[in-house]
Computed example of a mutant assay.
Amino acid sequence: MTGKPVVTGKTVAVIVHYGGVDPTVSLAARLDTSPAVDQVVAVANDLTGRPAELPASVAWIVPPRNLGFGGGFRCGTDAYPSASTYILLNNDVRLDEATIAECLRALAGDDVGIVAPTLVNADGLQSGAAVTTRVLGAPRVLRVPPTGDVHDADWVTGAVMFVKARCHRQVPMDCRFFLGWEDLEFCRRARRAGWRVLLSPARAWHTGGATLPAKAYGYYYTRNQLWFARMSGWRVRAALIALWSGLVVLPRTVALDLLRRRGTALSVLVFHGLLDGLTRLPSDDAPLPDEPRAARWSRWG
């Protein structure tokens, strides 16, 4: 790892890297010039060596294995434990100085633990206020533009998230999910611990780099929804989710696979996600040793 060895009471941006290095290098270089960011660190979950074109002041960490999204963020924060603020980013997110300043301003409130900007993409607004559904506890994004000042949300997306270090030390992001639902679960625990989760009307751009196979999300969404319910102690909801996944989602996926003649890869991933969601909940706060599990049934990398 290179870069500034000690960052105390400062803002550290953590980019979770996977796939092509160009988006990560571009984002890191821009953040490295920001007067509001004191240190930029990229965690290379694909185990890629440091790119030659990366600015010398940017830290590049290669973990011992793919740690997933939450694990990658934890790896970056562990390297700079004395920071006061962390910015968690996908490598396909772009944000300007005004958005950084607005989100940091909102995060300065004593009881505020997490702030996110409103995401837009090529189709327009991607995420406004985010809630969880009452029955299945599923994440739901309300595509309504926020108005006025920041406002409270059930959860905000981890694609770009400003996190107060004290909040993360109290309720660190769970590493077990590997890919998906860790942001929702993190926000839920933060709110239960007394921290506010805010959505800002300041905007960030999500380009959607698609570094991972889209079908793999069929596995992780199915599995992690069940894990989220089980970790939350929602036995009835977990049973309902399992029934919904097995009796509705899986048959519908199989039917669509057959009708569209796209093979059975997605159906297989949903099936295994259901099985693992019911049987493989890790006891330790770490990804399963054989992650990425979805690579067993789909192309990966």
Rank of each mutant, 00 (worst) to 15 (best):
M1W: 00
K4Y: 08
V7L: 13
T8N: 01
T8H: 05
A13G: 04
H17N: 08
H17V: 03
L27A: 11
A28Y: 02
L31K: 09
D32L: 08
S34T: 15
P35M: 08
D38T: 10
Q39A: 13
V43D: 01
N45D: 12
R50S: 10
P55M: 07
A59C: 09
P64R: 11
R65I: 05
G68N: 03
F69Y: 14
F73W: 11
R74N: 11
G76P: 01
D78Q: 13
T85W: 05
D92R: 10
D96L: 04
D96M: 07
V115D: 00
P117Y: 03
N121G: 15
S127D: 10
A130V: 02
T132F: 12
R140C: 05
P146V: 14
G148R: 11
G148P: 12
V150Q: 00
H151C: 14
D152H: 10
D152N: 07
D152Q: 12
D154H: 13
D154Q: 11
M161D: 03
M161C: 15
M161N: 04
F162I: 10
K164V: 02
K164M: 01
A165C: 06
C167N: 12
Q170F: 06
P172W: 11
C175V: 01
F177G: 06
F178N: 04
W181P: 01
W195H: 02
R196F: 09
L198G: 08
P201Y: 00
A202F: 06
R203Q: 15
W205K: 02
W205H: 10
T207K: 06
A214P: 13
K215T: 13
R223T: 05
N224C: 02
N224W: 00
N224S: 09
Q225P: 03
W227F: 14
R230A: 14
W234H: 11
V236F: 13
R237W: 06
A238W: 01
L240Q: 04
I241V: 15
L243H: 03
L243R: 13
V248W: 13
A255Y: 13
D257T: 08
L259P: 02
R260T: 10
R261K: 14
L266F: 01
S267M: 05
V270L: 09
H272L: 06
L278D: 01
A286F: 04
A286T: 03
A286D: 03
D290Y: 14
P292M: 04
P292C: 07
R299Y: 06
W300H: 15
